[in-house]
Design a protein around this nucleic acid. Structure first.
Lengths: 206, 206
DNA sequence: CGAACAAGATTGTGCAACAATCCTGTTGTG
DNA sequence: CACAACAGGATTGTTGCACAATCTTGTTCG
C-alpha cells in the first residue's frame, strides 16, 4: 500500500485516498486502523493519520525488540540443532542471486530467512510480534534506502549464521546473530539524515 | 467490554452486539478489529468473531513471550539499579491490602507493578507488545479464576522481587523473576479444566 | 500586531442497503 | 434409510450518503 510512494510525514486524507484506491471510506478506515495497530501509521484524533517520521530512537527501539525476539528464537532453534527448511531455502535463493540482483530481491530473501528462524521457534505470539516488527523494519529500509552489500556477501553472512544452528552451538549462533543485527542497525543509523529538509523546528529564533 | 460476561467460545453477532452497546455496526467492527489485533478475539472471514478458547499451549505461549519481555526489562532496570516509582507505589498499595481484599484489587496492583517494570525499560515497542500480552494475561485470569495467595503473600513476593533491582543485582533479580513467572504459569495451568463442558468433539463415536 | 470569529475542510459516527458467503433445513434419489 | 443437491435465511463485507464534532485557515476588528 505504501511501499515508498508515500514519503515520511505525509498525511493521508480519507476521502482522497479512498477515491484513489477505489474503496469506500469505511473500508479505508478499517485498513488504516490495521496499519496503525501495526505501527506503520500514526493516528491522532480528529487530525487524521500520517506516515511516521523515523528517528534514531525509533530505529534503536525496533532493533532492540527485534534482537530480543530473534535471540529467543535462535536459542530455541540452535539448542535443538534444528535447521529450518525455509531458512535453508531462503539461503539457497540468496546464494543463487547474482551481483546484478535488485535491492528488493535481496531484502525479500533476507526477510524470509529471519522469518523462518522466528517461525521455527514455534510460538504464535512471537511470530505475530515479529511480523509487526518486521513491518517496521521494511519501513526503515524503504524510508532510508541504506547501503547494502553485494548479494554474495549477504548470503555468506547468513550461511555463517546458519552453520552453528545446525551444529547446535548456541553460544556461537547467538554471538554471530548479535553481530549481524548490530551491523544492520548501524547500517541503518548511518543512512539516517541528520535533519530532514523542511521539518526544522523554528522555535529558538522567532 | 468482555470482562467475564462473555464465555470462552462465545460468538459475537455484529448486529446484535451493536444494538446492545448502542453503537453502529461500523463502530463495533472497528472496536472488534482492535480487540482482534490485541489477541482478545479471533476473527475468521465471513464467519464472525468469537472469544478464543484457551488451551494449555496458549497459556504456555503467553508466558513465554511475557517472560521474554519482563526479563529484558528486568535486566535493563536492574543493571541500572533503578527502582521504578510506579512499581514502589504499586507495591505499597499491595501491602496496604487486607486479607479481605477482593481478587480484582490484587490483580490490579499486580498488573501495575509489572507494567511499571516494563515501562521503566524505556522501549515503546516493548511496552506496546507487553500491553497486548497483558490483555491476554488478564484474559487468562478472567477465564480461569485461578487460586491466588493472600494479598500479604503476593506483596511479599513482589517486594523480594524489587529488592535486588534496587540493589543492582541483575542475576538475583532475574532468578527471582523466573521463579515468579513459572509459579504464575503453573498456577494458571493447574486451574485449566481438562475438557470444557459442551465442547467435546464427538468425532470418534459417530 | 494580536485576538476573536466565521467559513471551510476533515474526521467520527450513524443509518440503510446490497452482494458475497456461510449455515441450515428440505427435497429428491438410489 | 442414507446421502447428495439445492434453496432459503442469516451473517458478514462493503458501499453510499448524511450529519455532528472538531480542527484549520483566513478574515476582521480592536
Amino acid at each position: 500500500m505504501l511501499d515508498g510512494v508515500l514519503g515520511p510525514g505525509a498525511r493521508i486524507v480519507e476521502e482522497q485516498a479512498a477515491a484513489e484506491l477505489g474503496v469506500s471510506r469505511h473500508t479505508l478506515r478499517a485498513a488504516m486502523r490495521q496499519l496503525v495497530s501495526d505501527g506503520l501509521l500514526r493516528h491522532e484524533p480528529h487530525r487524521g493519520v500520517h506516515v511516521p517520521i523515523l528517528t534514531a530512537e525509533d530505529i534503536t527501539d525496533v532493533f532492540r525488540i527485534r534482537a530480543l525476539l530473534e535471540h529467543e528464537a535462535m536459542r530455541d532453534v540452535a539448542s535443538r540443532a534444528y535447521c529450518p527448511p525455509d531458512a535453508v531455502a531462503a539461503l539457497a535463493a540468496l546464494e543463487s542471486l547474482g551481483d546484478d540482483a535488485g535491492w528488493h530481491e535481496v531484502v525479500e530473501y533476507d526477510r524470509a530467512f529471519h522469518r523462518a528462524l522466528i517461525d521455527a521457534a514455534g510460538s504464535v505470539r512471537i511470530s505475530r510480534t515479529y511480523a509487526a516488527t518486521e513491518a517496521e523494519i521494511v519501513f526503515c529500509l524503504v524510508q532510508l534506502r541504506p547501503h547494502y552489500d553485494r548479494p554474495v556477501e549477504v548470503a555468506r553472512e547468513h550461511r555463517e549464521l546458519l552453520e552453528p544452528v545446525a551444529a547446535g552451538d548456541v553460544r556461537k549462533a547467538q554471538r554471530l546473530l548479535d553481530v549481524h543485527l548490530r551491523d544492520a542497525e548501524r547500517n541503518l543509523l548511518g543512512s539516517l539524515p541528520g535533519v530532514r529538509a523542511g521539518s526544522v523546528s523554528p522555535d529558538s529564533t522567532t
